[in-house]
Every structure is written in structure tokens, then in C-alpha cells.
Design a protein around this nucleic acid. Structure first.
Length: 601
RNA sequence: GCGGGAAUAGCUCAGUUGGAUAGAGUAACUGGCUUCGAACCAGUAGGUCGGGGGUUCAAUUCCCUCUUCCCGUACCA
């Protein structure tokens, strides 16, 4: 990612100013070094933004303490005109040079961009090279299996990354890769055809779930019949099913086509509910045959070896073991398909970078696939990245569709919606339309579920406990949404009161003198840097933490400072403007997490 | 065995290029709605950052080592 780093206007101003001063004292230094060095003081008592002087100690051959105090004295001695208007005062505090900012300047420089009609603030401009066209693949559920809460982590993570990359200016293609072929499908069809006694639901929406349950039954039955006379018969049927699926015709093939749709409908419904959109759907079934042909071609070229009747590559020199590509029966594997798929992605979409959001258990798989692509001479092998996250498990261990110990995603959704309706929305029953109540419950449920998934760092596993998830107090999606709703309500009520002063004059930011007000202004200015950091590190959790902090600060301000009954119209209108800024940033931030921001709830 | 990851308050988690007094939520206790929405706010209490070494002016953060747990390790995906 060859691009210039985004620097917020405050740090840019301060570092250019500081550079002039430091260069005079003889230290080798650059704007870049300075910009990265700023940090937040532990308390606002110490200043608004801090500049640690440690890194200058070597080149200046002086103690950091001394450097800080010299810099502070130099700045104090400057005539006002030689100082940026943004800086009110610079004070040394131990090895730190702490700046106090002019809040009026901060308001006009940064906060008013948020309030612009075209929301200038949220359009970060990055100079330098164009950003690579990036494909992000996520959500690879199997058809014929049940969707569980683990799939939701992947969905929330992938979708948020799409939104973060787009916000940061990347051209992005979102894609999904459902597993619609394989032995799990064969098992399910076997049961459907030969043993299914359960009634098929009449409504299409229920059939995907039904199919998932059938799969579990099928797996159990096959396990039970191992070692009995039925075993070899079962195996023959499964082989026959796979053969028909491969050939593309026959009774089992027709049953596959029909039942596959049931699962796909369930996926589409989940994506719709979650407000997740894919630009491209790839299916395992469509890359299956071509992938086998591709491997055979390279086998002839002598790239792969035959071993124990199968075909693969020995990657042990790269510590990646042996990568199997064709089974002894001639069929391909997961890795085989991913090789063909990688080729297609770059060719069909002219992408320059390809990210796979898949759980950590596939790390070796992707390392092997990318290595094989490299050996095949695929130029873009180095542009493929596996973004691993740890998976979701239950208090009593890993989830397994085979064993049937999973929490279906629909169960979480239904319970969450029910909870929100019964505990919070009941009070609006005769005031709001049923449509609005349903929509609000839906939006808050999205907030609770997605935020719950995204706030945990991707590389940490999530132990899913439904009762815990249904507590939505404290740090949660609904907390942020509630803050947004309350601000919206406040603005609607109070805005008319200050309409006159708002129209006639500039926003009197200088009237904001309370600690909680200063803290909010500074926090708002951080937004874009947090978002970029979240994108660069592929961590939506950074945005979660930021939004939570912002809400915490706002709710503290809300409790202490009245907007409607401020001491003067100037203070009131400045507080109103501040509230509007917070609302805009919350709305934008939530949208990066794929979470709606309700106006009331 | 080898490879990868994790260990921070009772519980769930932040703490990212090493920096000022390690922070939230939750559970426990206390206070705050006649006042802009209490899905809220404020306070008390809770820590040898798994153990031990090392590098550094400075280590939860980097290096080494040990312990415990999780994942992966050719015909499943």
C-alpha cells in the first residue's frame, strides 16, 4: 500500500511549526517524525496534545527534560504572530512538551468540516499513488449445513472491512464463496433420498434450516452404521452421488439443485437482514471441474508429483508440509478449488490485491495455496492475503454441525429481537407504528450482534454464551445507538431555540470551557486517524473502541452540561453544534461497522 | 515432534510501531430522574499485566526460557 499517510490537520499544523524551531537548535528531524510522535496527555490538566521529547535526546545530546523546557521557553518568547493561531500555550512537564490549543481555532479548523453539508470531514484525501483494487472474500458457509453464530463473526468482520476500505478510498469488490459441493452435501442427499421421514417445511424460508438439521441426522446415522453390513452399501451410494454431481445429471443431481436453493435462500435472507451485499458470488461447484483440469495441466508440465496414488507438491522445504491437490480417485480438494478461484478473481475483476477472511484453522491451507500459486508462476501470488481470525466456540467446546452442538444464527437473531421488543420497545406500542417498532428492533439487534462480534480483536477467540449476549448494557452496540438516538432527540428539540444565533454568526466554540466539552472536541478530531488505523490493521475493533469512548465522553457531557438551559445563548448554540458533530461522527462510525443509527429507539 | 496463537481486576475484554499514575464493561456496594430520553451519569472496591531472565534512561509492549491452554500438521471442507 504505497500511499502517504493521512495526518490530521492539528498534528500537521503543530509539526510544521515545531520543525522550524527544532531545526534551529541543530537536530536532524523531519515533519514525518514529528507527526508520528504526538500523543494524548493522561489528563486534560496537562494539556490538549503532548509531544514527548525522548527521541530528540540523542541528536541534541541533552536530556529530554531539558529539551522540553527549552522548547517551551523558545515558544513562549516568540511574538504571537510567529505562532500558529491554533497554539494557545506550550508548557513543559517533565520530558513532555504539552500544548494547549485554542478551541476556537480547533472548532473552525476541524469540527466545522463535520457540519458541512457535503461532510468534507468524512472525505479524506490521500495524495500519492492510487490505491490497489482489492477483492475481499468473506462468508464461505456450506450449503446443506446450518448457519450458526460463528458465521456471523465472519460476516460482520468481512463486511466492516469492505466498508473501511471503501471509506479509505480503495476500489473494492466484495465476494462470497459458498461450499455447495463435497461429501457433506452427498451425506445430506443420501439421507434425504433414503431415510428422510421428517416433513419438508411448506414455506421456502424454513427449508434451509431444515436441511441443516437433516445434515446432522445424516452424519449421525452414517456414524452409527459404521462397522455394520450397511457401511459398504452407504459408501457406494455416496460415491454414486458424488459422481452424479460431478457429471451434472441424474436423480441426485436434480435433488442437489433443488435443495441447494433452500440453503442459498437462507443465506440471502441472512445477508439481507444483516445489510451485507456481495458484488460477486463464486460457488465451489463452478470451479470444481476446471480446477482439476488446471492441476492436470501443471502435472504434465512436471510441477507436481504423484505420491501414493494421489497428486500434490512437497512444500516441506518451506515448512508447509505436503499439499495434496488430487485425491487417488482423481477428485480435487479444497486447495485445488482455491487455486482455480484465485486465478479467476484476478482475471475476471482485474484486481491487484486479494484478501481472504477465513478463520485461523485455514492458515496452513492458505499458506500452501499461495505457495503453489507462486510455483505455478502466478504473478499475483504475493498479492493474496489470508486474514485469519479466531473462531467462535461454545462454553463446552468447538461448534460442530456434524455433532449438532451449534447455536443457529436465527436463534440468536430471534432471541435478540424478542428481548429488545419486550424489554425496551413495549413502551412505544401505542405511540409508534408496528412497522417502526419492528424496524427499530431489527436495527438494534443488528447493533448488538455486530458490535458484539467486532469489538473483540479478531485474533482472540469468542466463547459464545447466549444469556451473556442478551445483556446489552454497558459497552455494546445499543449503547452507541442509544447515544445517537438521544442526541437526535435533543437536537430536534433544542435546535429551534438557537436557530436565530446559529444563522447569523460563526459558532462560538470559545464558549466551550468545560472539561467534558474540550475532551469531546479533541476526540472528534481523532476520527479519521482511527478509521485509517482500523483499515491498515484490518481491525474494526479500533472503531468500536473509539465510538464507545466518544459516547462515554458525550454522555458525561450530557449529564453535566445542559444544552437547552445553558447559561447564555452562545454557550447553548456552541453545545448544540458540538452535539451535532458527535451525532454525525457516530452515524458515520456505526456505518463503518455495518450498524444502523436509529433516530429514536 | 514440528508450526501458529493466547495468558492483563472474580468474569468478559481494551491497552499496535517501548513513554506520564495499566483502563473499560460486568458482578458487589453507594448516590443521582418535577429539569434536553435513566438502554444514562457519578462514586467505592477490585492488579506481583502466567513464572523467571535479558535489552533500555524507560517493558503489559521487544528478545530468550519455562508453565498452562487452544488451533493446525496429505486423500474432510
Amino acid at each position: 500500500m504505497q500511499r502517504q499517510e493521512y495526518i490530521d490537520p492539528i498534528k500537521k499544523d503543530l509539526s510544521h511549526f515545531l520543525l522550524g524551531i527544532i531545526e534551529k537548535s541543530g537536530a536532524a528531524c523531519s515533519v514525518d517524525m514529528l507527526q508520528k510522535n504526538f500523543c494524548a496527555p493522561p489528563s486534560l490538566d496537562l494539556g490538549h496534545i503532548a509531544f514527548p521529547c525522548f527521541f530528540l535526546a540523542k541528536s541534541l545530546k541533552k536530556a529530554p527534560l531539558q529539551i522540553a523546557s527549552t522548547l517551551a521557553q523558545t515558544i513562549a518568547a516568540l511574538p504571537a504572530a510567529a505562532r500558529p493561531t491554533l497554539i494557545k500555550q506550550a508548557k513543559a512537564e517533565g520530558p513532555y512538551l504539552n500544548f494547549y490549543l485554542d478551541l476556537k481555532e480547533l472548532g473552525t479548523l476541524v469540527l466545522e468540516q463535520i457540519l458541512q453539508e457535503d461532510q468534507t470531514f468524512f472525505k479524506i484525501t490521500i495524495s500519492g499513488q492510487a490505491l490497489p483494487k482489492t477483492m475481499i472474500e468473506f462468508s464461505q458457509p456450506n450449503t446443506h449445513k446450518e448457519l450458526h453464530v460463528g458465521h456471523m463473526r465472519n460476516l460482520a468482520l468481512g463486511d466492516s472491512l469492505i466498508r473501511l476500505y471503501r471509506y479509505c478510498g480503495f476500489p473494492v469488490v466484495s465476494t462470497t464463496f459458498p461450499g455447495d459441493v463435497g461429501t457433506h452435501v452427498a451425506k445430506c442427499l443420501w439421507y434425504l433420498k433414503h431415510h428422510q421421514k421428517e416433513a419438508i417445511p411448506t414455506t421456502m424460508e424454513k427449508r434451509g434450516e431444515f436441511l441443516g438439521k437433516i445434515y446432522t441426522l445424516a452424519h449421525k446415522k452414517l456414524e452409527e452404521e459404521l462397522g455394520t453390513p450397511l457401511e459398504s452399501e452407504n459408501r457406494e451410494i455416496l460415491t454414486q452421488i458424488l459422481k452424479e454431481l460431478h457429471q451434472g445429471h441424474g436423480e441426485y443431481f436434480n435433488l442437489w439443485k433443488e435443495s441447494r436453493e433452500w440453503s442459498l435462500l437462507q443465506m440471502r435472507n441472512l445477508y439481507k437482514w444483516s445489510d451485507v451485499h456481495f458484488d460477486q458470488w463464486y460457488f465451489e461447484s463452478e470451479v470444481d471441474a476446471p480446477s482439476v483440469a488446471l492441476i492436470k495441466k501443471y502435472l504434465e508440465k512436471g510441477l507436481f508429483v504423484q505420491s501414493e496414488g494421489a497428486v500434490g507438491v512437497d512444500l516441506s522445504s518451506d515448512n508447509l508440509g505436503f499439499c495434496l491437490l488430487l485425491k487417488s480417485d482423481g477428485n480435487g480438494l479444497y486447495a485445488t478449488k482455491d487455486i482455480e478461484l484465485a486465478r479467476r478473481k484476478f482475471e475476471e475483476h482485474k484486481i491487484e490485491k486479494s484478501i481472504y477472511v477465513v478463520d485461523v484453522r485455514q492458515s496452513l491451507h492458505f499458506a500452501q495455496v499461495f505457495k503453489v500459486l507462486e510455483l505455478m508462476g502466478f504473478a499475483h501470488a504475493k498479492d493474496c492475503i489470508h486474514l485469519a481470525y479466531d473462531f467462535v466456540e461454545l462454553p463446552d467446546g468447538a461448534m460442530s454441525s456434524r455433532k449438532g452442538n451449534i447455536v443457529p444464527i436465527q436463534e440468536l437473531i430471534d432471541e435478540m429481537v424478542k428481548l429488545i421488543r419486550n424489554n425496551y420497545l413495549l413502551q412505544y406500542e401505542n405511540l409508534w407504528s408496528e412497522e417502526e417498532i419492528a424496524r427499530t428492533a431489527h436495527h438494534v439487534a443488528i447493533g448488538a450482534i455486530k458490535y458484539g462480534m467486532l469489538r473483540i480483536d479478531p485474533q482472540r477467540k469468542i466463547v459464545f454464551d447466549l444469556p451473556e449476549w442478551l445483556k446489552i448494557d454497558g459497552e455494546s452496540g445499543p449503547y452507541i445507538q442509544y447515544s445517537h438516538a438521544r442526541i437526535s432527540s435533543l437536537i430536534e428539540k433544542v435546535a429551534p431555540k438557537y436557530a436565530a444565533s446559529a444563522n447569523n454568526s460563526a459558532i462560538p466554540w470559545e464558549e466551550l470551557k468545560e472539561r467534558s466539552e474540550e475532551a469531546l472536541m479533541l476526540k472528534l478530531a481523532d476520527f479519521n486517524q482511527v478509521v485509517i488505523s482500523a483499515q491498515e490493521n484490518n481491525r474494526p475493533s479500533f472503531v468500536c473502541a473509539y465510538l464507545y469512548d466518544l459516547c462515554k465522553l458525550y454522555n458525561n457531557f450530557y449529564a453535566e452540561c445542559s444544552v437547552a438551559h445553558a447559561a447564555s445563548p452562545e454557550i447553548g448554540s456552541a453545545r448544540l453544534a458540538l452535539s451535532k458533530c458527535v451525532r454525525e461522527v457516530l452515524r458515520e462510525g456505526l456505518s463503518l461497522l455495518g450498524i444502523p443509527a436509529p433516530k429514536r429507539m
